[in-house]
Amino acid sequence: MSEPGASSHVANWPDRVHRALSLAGVTQVAYVPDAGHKHLIDLCHADPTMRAVPLTSEEEGVGLSAGAWLGGAKSVLLMQSSGVGNVVNALAMARECHFPVVMIVTMRGEEGETNPWQVPMGQAAAIVLEAMGVEARRAEAPEGVAPAVEMAIASAYNANGREERAVAVLISQTVIGVKHFVEVAD
């Protein structure tokens, strides 16, 4: 598991993101779990004003977000970078209809990655999002995550239907930490 670092400053970024979601009026939180999102997912499940919706695959979250907004509800979609590959055609629908979608993406395949299979999609994630016209914001440090999420929500849900859009926050692996695979010796 990629546990957050030891300092409380690092550990509390999910709390600040949760507070940002709450202040923005987000009521649906869709997710495919990632270790980096563990605490935020727990906070959203525990919040009676939010409906946490586990997905079988990330593209479901784009449809959920679109439907929620038809009904006037704001949502976010939590995923790891491998999930960016799963949302592509659904993002085409979101773009054509100008649906707001906010993706909070924990990055894998960056510095320190110990699973080489995570590298191709991690490396391609930002490029794929750009190709689909998604506004991408990077958070390279724990203190930058909540402000980036606030900006993303404001940009996606901007009170002008013609300008509503999909926005992604890419949370660097240096914020999340590195997942280590250690085999148990016989």
């Binding site: 409906r51 919706v53 907004w69 038809l70 006037g72």
Partner: peptide, 9 residues
């Protein structure tokens, strides 16, 4: 999924 988001909203 659009139906679900709408139904929950």
């Amino acid at each position: 999924m659009m139906g679900l988001g709408l139904a929950l909203a």
